[in-house]
């Protein structure tokens, strides 16, 4: 009985190893911000070459990096650059994390459509999130306590927000942490007094605030007048090679079709 079980397990493991090197398989994991791009790219690539199977998970930039380190994904999508600690861990695991910028994004500050506030300064946003400004009344809005919505700490969007907006200040204890860009948007759509921050592809049905009097758009992000913009990344083990399934997927952002997809999804192609 025992040897039968062992035999079964070894057969299963052996089979798993034989099929592991499928050249038409691309596993993409990481950022929920980059998710819409990754999903649309996958769709496009699979339509062009139907034998390919590209799977996309959206579990957060931090998870994407971890998956790449564990060799558990081919492409890690991230909305923040890899940290030095992650790069070092990658090196130790024998993985060369190669960075490709796929698109540009402006971190959009979003509020409910009924909110009369039109724009905030960076200082005001920092004060709101660190808990110094607690009521919309202080910003010229209605007398309502502000509901803070933030991404969880695994998120690249969260870390972008920390570095670009908070600059060392701590996010207040009243903030509500949710697991994806979509969830922030959903929370803001349903809560009149809420404020949140998302990637540009998640601004449907909410009001996007001007930051330092600049509204995020393709133009203001590219000319850097919008103060909180950032690149979106795809990381691979080694430089992506054209002609391979993985390489073509990552490099799609440089083709005219890929740039059009990025635009249609809501982000800004790299110039």
């Amino acid at each position: 009985m025992k040897s039968m079980m062992m035999g079964m397990i070894s057969v299963v493991i052996g089979a798993g190893m034989v099929f592991a090197g499928d050249p038409n398989k691309v596993v993409v994991d990481g950022s929920t911000t980059v998710g819409p791009i990754a999903k649309a790219f996958a769709e496009y690539a699979m339509q062009k070459n139907p034998v390919m199977n590209i799977t996309v998970s959206e579990s957060g930039s931090g998870n994407g990096a971890k998956s790449l380190l564990n060799n558990a994904c081919d492409v890690a999508t991230m909305s923040r650059p890899m940290k030095n600690s992650e790069k070092k861990a990658a090196q130790e695991a024998g993985i060369l994390a190669f960075e490709t910028v796929v698109a540009m994004d402006g971190l959009a500050m979003i509020v409910h459509e009924s909110n009369p506030v039109q724009g905030l300064t960076l200082e005001q946003i920092r004060a709101i999130y660190s808990g110094q400004i607690v009521n919309w009344k202080e910003l010229g809005g209605p007398d309502q306590p502000i509901v803070l919505i933030s991404r969880d700490t695994n998120s690249g969007t969260y870390e972008s927000f920390e570095t670009l907006v908070m600059k060392g200040a701590k996010i207040g204890s009243k903030a509500e942490y949710v697991g994806s860009n979509g969830a922030i948007r959903q929370r803001v759509v349903s809560t009149p007094a809420a404020i949140g921050y998302v990637g540009l592809a998640f601004c449907e049905g909410v009001k996007v605030l001007a930051v330092n009097q600049v509204t995020p758009s393709a133009e203001t992000v590219v000319n850097k007048s919008y103060p909180i913009s950032r690149p979106l990344f795809m990381y691979t083990n080694g430089r992506p090679k054209a002609g391979t399934a993985k390489g073509d997927f990552v490099l799609l952002g440089n083709t005219p079709e890929g740039r059009k997809i990025i635009e249609d999804v809501g982000y800004i192609p790299v110039q």
């Binding site: 089979a15 798993g16 099929f19 398989k25 999903k39 699979m46 199977n53 799977t55 996309v56």
Partner: peptide
Amino acid sequence: SIGKPLTLFQTLTQ
């Protein structure tokens, strides 16, 4: 989130 329907063999790795 997205992926293709798998064949029986692909279930081992995908």
